[in-house]
Design a protein around this nucleic acid. Structure first.
Lengths: 141, 141
DNA sequence: CATGGACCCTGTAGTCGCTTCAGGGTCAAG
DNA sequence: CTTGACCCTGAAGCGACTACAGGGTCCATG
């Protein structure tokens, strides 16, 4: 058997919603193995590649870095090991996401404060510019 | 008048909490004007530079891009114009921040769902790996 | 006056995850 | 046999810096 329905890079691109250039990039950086080549030197992908690329795309969509994706792929291949390591990678990533959310929420509050003060006068009396400018540093001889 | 207390790049760095390399970078990309030089070719900054760099740092800390910082600086110099343009830049940025927060919150929910399903067995039956893997694509001849 | 160490200079390369481009080659349809 | 869609490689670009290599300057000691 070993069903042979080799996909071109364009077909794989459409099947996974990844750009052709990104697929070649994944090959370069080692998250997707180099496929066989046709007589005309075209990449010919099999089902294993499709599965692996889908995995990579999903993990990337969830915000995992390529380093984390590499680790998840490595862990996914060690099928008899405990999956606590997988859980740990996911929890660490969740922690990062939560930190970013907190940072952005603090930022949002500050921006809302700035914008709320705008009286739509001239730049000369603009509260936003004032808030960004340092407290009167002029005339300190 | 015209107080001369020139700052070295290191002193400016400490005064603003910006690395020396970042200051040189801001000069290169035109958000901080090139200062005078000493006889030994050291950069010599004045109070105007300190003010301008402080402005840049605050805007950057609020997450404005360097392009937005350039626009805010330009607007800040046109002191008689209406400040609606300033308000617009800030509102656009707020919109971006809010979009990022929404994206990250969706991500957080997905990750929490994944992690909640971990039964701490082996990788073979790991729900996180399963969730990342494509639905059975094998055997489609 | 020489020396050491802190500071400064320029220019280049690296980070991350791709995207974009230049300059080609391959292949199937008409 | 030509057209046009697809494919190839390799290099450069993005944002906003950081890190380094290989030097020069300055000042306080000994």
């Amino acid at each position: 058997m070993a069903a042979e329905n080799p996909l071109s890079i364009g077909a794989l691109s459409k099947a996974t919603g990844t750009t052709v250039e990104a697929i070649r990039w994944y090959e370069r950086v080692g998250v997707l193995p180099a496929p066989a080549r046709t007589a005309g030197n075209y990449r010919a992908y099999g089902t294993a590649h499709l599965e692996r690329l889908s995995f990579v795309r999903r993990a990337r969509d969830l915000g995992f870095t390529l380093d984390q994706v590499r680790e998840l792929l490595r862990l996914a291949d060690e099928r008899d090991r405990p999956c606590d390591a997988v859980d740990r990678v996911a929890r660490e990533h969740l922690g990062e996401v939560e930190r970013k959310i907190a940072d952005l929420e603090a930022l949002r509050r500050e921006l809302q404060g700035l914008i709320g003060q705008c009286r739509h006068g001239t730049v000369n009396e603009c509260r936003i510019i004032e808030a960004l400018s340092p407290a009167e540093v002029r005339d300190v001889p």
